[in-house]
């Protein structure tokens, strides 16, 4: 009971926080708080196996994948608060209030006595008792669920699968191709030159200088050049100086 009264406020605040915070990663973090608190509640209710599984599966794997995707696609910008659908906010408030009312009424009418049968259920130890149930009475549901999950996983793989039309070029083939290109067109063999970050300015959109003083266009990332496509890339040192000066302190 102590665990419940300690954790319940934390969980409610965290759950409300999920709705309120702007950044997706913060919401995921708060969700982790709710999940871990739930796991601790399981532990305090003498379901230790569920405690471990809740953390390993939900917090450790599923939410981690959420985070992975959030970070990968970079959804860390704050949400905009402008209403896109007219009356959206009012409708959401009304429906939310109705839902809360329903849940409140439903929960209010249910009365629970103290839990009975925990001793008998855990008589052979929590884990063996759970295994006993899972692989006898509920084996069909268990197998069906696993089949469903496997189908989903295979389905995701099939959808994301791309047939390779030609064999994948390995390190050896790539090296051979590079040498070939050099022999045919004289294209430089080695990696591209680094930008002028270390030369005089601390910005990756400053080109590196070749030994004769001319800027190397190859040293600039094409995406960065494209970003200022209203300007032509600088042609020599003077032009670079001018460009950096016009950017002011921001570029340094």
């Amino acid at each position: 009971m102590i665990a419940f009264w300690c954790l319940a406020p934390i969980m409610v605040v965290a759950a409300l926080g999920i709705l309120v915070v702007r950044k997706a990663v913060h919401a995921a973090l708060l969700l982790a708080v709710v999940m871990i608190s739930l796991a601790v509640l399981y532990a305090s209710l003498e379901a230790p196996f569920l405690f471990a599984v809740q953390i390993i599966v939900y917090t450790g794997a599923i939410l981690m994948l959420f985070l992975f995707v959030l970070m990968l696609v970079g959804v860390d910008a704050s949400d905009s608060l402008t209403e896109t659908i007219k009356g959206h906010r009012v409708a959401a408030l009304v429906v939310g209030a109705l839902f809360g009312l329903t849940v409140g009424l439903a929960v209010g009418q249910v009365g629970y006595g103290t839990a009975v049968g925990l001793e008998t259920a855990n008589a052979a130890g929590n884990v063996p008792a759970l295994a006993d149930l899972l692989f006898s009475d509920w084996v069909l549901a268990f197998e069906t669920t696993s089949a469903l999950l496997i189908t989903a996983a295979v389905g995701a793989m099939v959808l994301a699968h791309r047939e390779r039309l030609e064999p994948r070029a390995g390190q050896r083939e790539l090296a051979a191709r590079r040498v070939q290109e050099y022999a045919e067109s004289g294209r430089h063999l080695g990696p591209l030159p680094a930008p002028g970050v270390y030369a005089r300015h601390n910005a990756v959109d400053t080109p590196a200088l070749l030994p004769d003083g001319s800027p190397s266009e190859l040293s600039l990332n094409r995406t960065l050049v494209g970003r200022h496509d209203d300007k032509t890339p600088p042609k020599d040192v003077k032009a670079i100086e001018k460009m950096v000066e016009s950017h002011g302190e921001a570029g340094r």
Binding site: P48, F49, I55, I56, G60, N126, V127
Partner: peptide, 11 residues
């Protein structure tokens, strides 16, 4: 605990 090794994995 009865699932101590799982506890280590979880933490």
């Amino acid at each position: 605990m009865p699932m101590a090794v799982l506890f280590v994995m979880a933490i």
